[in-house]
Design a protein around this nucleic acid. Structure first.
Lengths: 115, 115
DNA sequence: ATCGTTCATCGCAAATATACGATAAAAGAA
DNA sequence: TTCTTTTATCGTATATTTGCGATGAACGAT
């Protein structure tokens, strides 16, 4: 109330939701970890580490690429995927900003709000 | 290679993906912000701040409640929603853990991996 | 030119998600 | 009891997601 209905969502919320969507599948979380922790980058290698078909892994890679969290360098018939550090960093900063707001937000517990 | 196919996903990845799924819609991001920034807690109040029908907002609240990020205290016919600080904190810690791993992961760029 | 490797895309099926209006349930107020 | 307020749930429609096998495209090697 007082604050007018936005009729849309904020840019910040749309961005964060989009990043969250890209992270909303266990396979995609694990792909990101595989790309950082292991000396591996090819789609085929990732397929061997996940219980999914090649075409499915390819789709997950596409989704991660869509939001910019990873990038793929074409190497002849192969593609070398890797983390896009700057995008990842930007995403993390926005996530931190969100959670800092959510956690600092004075102890407005249910008890406090009840009137 | 070397590491056997898991045949499933890790517990950590499943948990993080579930939290991310709850955050994967702009309305739900904004609901969390509304609950922390404004002195508001009722479903009806939130409906007025979002371009969505009451039943839709109720569904979003249900999804946030499902993963424990918020809780709802019944107040007669009303329900006072608020952030569940401990769950939110736990989620944030896991997210920080993930991103710290992803960002620190030595500069294994595509260039580095190409062999 | 043909083969093998690697990956993306197509086509399809099943499951989920999103959204709304209508209705039900719960509880205080008249 | 009946009305009002508030929220959840039902039913429905549409869109998106997830997954797979099959196929196609790109390219190096033979």
């Amino acid at each position: 109330m007082a604050i007018a209905k936005t009729e849309e969502f904020t840019q910040e919320a749309v961005y964060l939701a989009d990043i969250a969507k890209a992270l909303s599948h266990p396979a995609r979380i694990q792909i990101l970890k595989i790309l950082t922790e292991m000396d591996v980058c090819m789609c085929g290698d990732i397929v061997e580490l996940l219980p999914l078909a090649q075409s499915t892994v390819s789709q997950h890679l596409k989704e991660l690429k869509r939001v910019g969290l990873i990038q793929g360098d074409i190497e002849g018939p192969k593609v070398c995927y890797c983390i896009n550090s700057s995008s990842l960093k930007k995403a993390y900063e926005q996530i931190q900003k969100l959670f800092n707001q959510l956690t600092k937000g004075g102890s407005k517990s249910c008890e406090t709000k009840k009137k």
